[in-house]
């Protein structure tokens, strides 16, 4: 079979203090993070609200790492 990547990755909503830590680690404000819309299927599953920071556990050929996206209004 043709090898296909794992499409659906683990999404997690961070608490406010965790979000602050991440934003401090990268030295940028929350509004500078990549975005994910509120109506996104994965955000709906987690019942995320605009302003939440979502941590995504990515797996790709470069390795395993965490990517962050900010939930915004559609």
């Amino acid at each position: 079979m043709v090898k296909t990547p794992e499409l659906i990755l683990k999404h997690e909503i961070l608490s406010d203090s965790e979000a602050k830590k991440v934003s401090k680690k990268y030295n940028i404000g929350l509004d500078k993070f990549p975005r994910i819309v509120e109506t996104d299927v994965q955000v709906q599953k987690l019942k995320g609200k605009p302003g939440d920071l979502v941590a995504i556990s990515r797996k790709d050929p470069t390795g395993n790492y965490t990517y962050y996206r900010l939930v915004v209004k559609d």
């Binding site: 990755l9 999404h11 994910i36 299927v41 994965q42 990517y67």
Partner: peptide
């Protein structure tokens, strides 16, 4: 994107 969300769409584009 419509059915699995942006992260999945990103993986699809890259793959």
């Amino acid at each position: 994107l419509k059915n699995y969300g942006v992260e999945a769409a990103r993986n699809t584009i890259a793959n």
